[in-house]
Amino acid sequence: MMLKSEIDLLRAVPLFAAIDPSRLKLIAYTAETVAYRQGQVLCRQGDAGDAAYVLIEGEADVSIAADTGDFVVAALKPGDVVGEIAILCDVPRTATVRATTQLSALRVRKEAFLQLVKQFPEVATEIMRGLAERLTHTNEELVRARNLAVGEGQPQ
């Protein structure tokens, strides 16, 4: 993919929308375009977090391993960012991301991603907003799951 179209893609992603185009050029230049086949894993739960991904085309599922198998917790679409938690918290990957269609993404290395957060407060704010939305969704799912479990344990 050409640099200009990568810059246009980055500008369309809320995380990068407020960044000056000349600075986006540096991000696009340091990022790597990667392609995945349907079913292929972008990152696996427990692995070291070495990069974040911005989906360009295609879709992916985010799943967490449970005793009963993998549990899908989110569906990603173009423009979504994934993999930032492992980078920001310096912890192993918290989930597995698997392409559900053919997929292309920009892979932003850990060092470049951390530089973005340091240089651009608006990026840090957008990351916090995205994480807060995910946490809210997770809390809602936990309440639903608990209500189902309690409901199943009740005599009819």
Rank of each mutant, 00 (worst) to 15 (best):
M1Y: 05
L3P: 04
K4S: 12
K4P: 08
S5W: 07
S5Y: 09
E6Q: 01
E6N: 07
I7T: 01
L10V: 02
L10Y: 06
R11H: 08
A12N: 11
L15Y: 15
L15R: 11
F16S: 03
A17F: 14
A17L: 10
A18V: 10
D20Q: 06
S22R: 02
L24W: 04
L24N: 00
K25S: 15
Y29F: 10
A31P: 03
A31F: 12
A31R: 03
E32W: 12
T33Y: 07
T33P: 11
Y36S: 01
Y36W: 09
R37V: 11
Q38L: 08
Q40H: 06
L42Q: 06
L42P: 00
R44C: 00
G46T: 11
L55A: 15
L55C: 02
I56H: 04
E59G: 10
A60E: 06
D61E: 15
S63V: 02
T68F: 14
L76Q: 13
L76M: 12
K77M: 08
G79F: 02
A86M: 03
L88W: 03
C89L: 07
P92N: 08
R93I: 02
A95N: 00
T96C: 05
T96Y: 04
T96A: 04
V97G: 03
T100N: 14
T100R: 11
A105N: 13
L106A: 05
L106N: 00
L106H: 06
L106S: 01
L106M: 13
R107S: 07
E111K: 15
A112N: 04
F113Y: 06
F113E: 04
Q115R: 10
K118Q: 13
P121Q: 10
E122Q: 10
E122W: 05
V123N: 01
T125G: 11
T125M: 10
R129P: 10
L131R: 10
L135S: 01
L135N: 06
T136Q: 12
H137G: 08
T138E: 07
L142M: 11
R144V: 07
L148I: 15
A149K: 11
A149R: 13
G151N: 10
G153N: 12
Q154C: 13
P155N: 13
Q156P: 11
